[in-house]
């Protein structure tokens, strides 16, 4: 049975994890490699590393980090942040990343998705979609780290990038992100139903129940969280045990 995936997400700045993380049993929780190894041992199914730095110089540091991560962990990982060209992706995949996630660049230049899929295969192209709901607009796609509203309706955009060759959608609800009130079940369900590729739900996880809900009710293929795991409010083994009890197929 193909299992639902649990994915911790790490924000990286200058080669270090950003958010203050509380791990007593890790030598250096600011070291992404140490943290990644720990999550892999805990049973995380994949990891996502987001480079939140901006300059080209820092981006080189990130590529070196990707190589270091690939050297040390034996589960798949996706890298994203600031990717805008085929050449950026080539560097990251050659460094050992399994997938890349692109966001604003896909909005600015949708042909990039097609180029990447042709060049490297759909299996390594994740399109990250930041979405926000207002009563006036419905669920719209946002660019530039959620600061710029686009004209794209979320379900239409997910369909479009899938047609262009995206192999996975990473859907983040800005309404839910940081609230710990649960994932956005309605838009996640709508996107999961609309596209033929796997959908990763992100934003709003606050309890084990929220993960069960997003798998059972919204049919997400994977669920991502950051601070919930980093602050150890929820641990991956407990979460997976709970999900199994709730009838969700997970890797234990």
């Amino acid at each position: 049975m193909l299992t639902k995936r649990i994915i911790p997400c790490l924000d990286i700045k200058n080669g270090r994890t950003v958010k203050g993380v509380r791990f007593e049993n890790i030598r250096d929780a600011g070291d992404p490699v140490e943290l990644a190894k720990w999550y892999a041992e805990q049973g995380a199914d994949e990891l996502v590393f987001l480079d939140i730095t901006a300059t080209n110089e820092e981006r080189k540091t990130f590529a070196e980090l990707v190589r270091d991560i690939a050297r040390h962990i034996d589960i798949p990982f996706t890298v994203g942040g600031g990717i805008s060209a085929v050449a950026d992706v080539e560097v990251l995949l050659q460094a050992g990343a399994d997938k890349v996630s692109i966001n604003s660049a896909a909005i600015q230049n949708p042909a990039l998705v097609e180029d990447l899929a042709k060049r490297f295969g759909s299996q390594c192209v994740t399109v990250a979609v930041d979405t926000k709901h207002t009563d006036a607009t419905g669920w719209k796609v946002y660019a530039r780290a959620g600061t710029v509203e686009t004209e794209h309706a979320t379900v239409d955009w997910a369909r479009k990038v899938t047609d262009l060759g995206a192999g996975e959608i990473l859907l983040t609800s800005m309404n839910n992100d940081g609230t710990k009130a649960g994932f956005a079940l309605d838009i996640t369900g709508a996107v999961a139903k609309a596209v033929s590729v796997p959908v990763v739900a992100s934003g709003g996880a606050g309890s084990k129940q929220h993960f069960a809900d997003v798998f059972h009710q919204a049919h997400a293929d994977a669920a991502l969280a950051a601070s919930l795991f980093h602050f150890r409010e929820l641990e991956v083994p407990d979460l997976k045990k709970y999900l199994k009890e709730q009838g969700v197929d997970v890797r234990l």
């Binding site: 193909l2 995936r5 589960i75 299996q123 996975e168 590729v197 890797r251």
Partner: peptide
């Protein structure tokens, strides 16, 4: 969903390649 992406189980193991691997072990596919 296609790609078949994620951890799925191995069954009917019939080779020295799987020495020490248990039936229903999880491996990563994409």
């Amino acid at each position: 969903k296609v790609p078949h992406m994620g951890w799925n189980q191995l069954e009917n193991l019939q080779s020295p390649l799987f020495e020490g691997i248990k039936e229903q072990e999880y491996v990563y596919y994409v």
